[in-house]
Design a protein around this nucleic acid. Structure first.
Length: 258
DNA sequence: AATACACGCAACCGCGGTACA
DNA sequence: TTGTACCGCGGTTGCGTGTAT
């Protein structure tokens, strides 16, 4: 009962979007907005379900999407945020302007997760070929330096401790949040290791500023108030709350898992 | 040069949460 | 208060492309 199929699959097109469909969708949204995704394809004359339209717009057609490779700073941010937030990709995306949750998720699964994976990986699972793009991209050197301490691939220091699953990263999470707050104060051993990447300090102070600023004008109530066209505002405010909570809390280990 | 394999990205699927009648 | 419809999110899959053999 209850839930209707997300889209009437009869007669609706699936698979890759054509440039023409993209144009139609963009034109329609620019003109009418996207207050109702379900009705949108009909109004726009697209043979797609609303869900598909929404996904296409959010992940690809939005004008503020930043295309291209992730920078070392962005990758670092993803790693840190993932340590804090777990697989809450939309929340992570909210901290990375121009990046979508889907994109971040892909990058995580294809690049970052592997880099953070411990070298305890059996030899049989080791890549048979040398990685192609990652080692060719110049920014990767920064990332490698930056991740060196936490990845067994570079320095075999019990990588599981900094690993990515939200359930096992509580203490590490705090170090990330803590380094955000006290970006000039690197007192813990993990933060000593983070001295290698100077970019982070400025980056995180910016990120932090963004975090606090965005919560100032909207507040938690606004999270439930609307802005229906906003993709991430609700999550953003939610995460602002948690981030502030982390920052204010002296000891994250006493906090419940998010 | 051809083939097999691995990677990366875009898209789909299903579920949970929320708004609304 | 309950049921329905819709939205958004996270997980997963499929395909195109690049690389090694």
């Amino acid at each position: 009962m209850g839930r209707a199929p997300c889209c009437e699959k009869m007669g609706l097109k699936r698979g890759p979007w054509t440039p023409e469909e993209d144009r139609v969708l963009v034109a329609h949204i620019e003109r009418h907005g996207h207050s109702n995704w379900r009705a949108l394809p009909k109004q726009a004359g697209l043979l797609r379900c609303g869900k598909s339209c929404r996904l296409r717009w959010i992940n690809y057609l939005r004008p503020d999407i930043k295309r291209g490779n992730f920078t070392a700073e962005e990758e670092d941010a993803i790693i840190q945020l993932h340590q804090m937030l777990g697989n809450r990709w939309s929340a992570i995306a909210a901290r990375l302007p121009g990046r979508t949750d889907n994109e971040i998720k892909n990058v995580w699964h294809t690049h970052l997760k592997k880099r953070l994976e411990p070298t305890t990986k059996p030899a049989s699972q080791a890549p048979k070929r040398k990685p192609k793009k990652q080692q060719q991209q110049p920014e990767t050197t920064a990332v490698t330096a930056l991740e060196g301490p936490t990845t067994g691939a570079v320095v075999p220091v019990s990588p599981e401790q900094s690993l990515s699953t939200s359930t096992t990263s509580t203490t590490t999470d705090y170090s990330a949040a803590s380094s955000m707050e006290n970006n000039a104060d690197s007192s813990t051993s993990e933060e000593e290791e983070e001295e290698d990447y100077q970019i982070d300090d400025s980056f995180w102070s910016e990120t932090l500023a963004m975090t606090v600023d965005s919560s100032d004008d909207s507040g938690m109530q606004a999270a439930f108030g609307g802005a229906p066209s906003s993709v991430t505002s609700t999550n953003d405010d939610d995460m602002d709350f948690w981030l502030k909570l982390f920052m204010q809390a002296g000891d994250m280990q006493n906090l419940p898992q998010i």
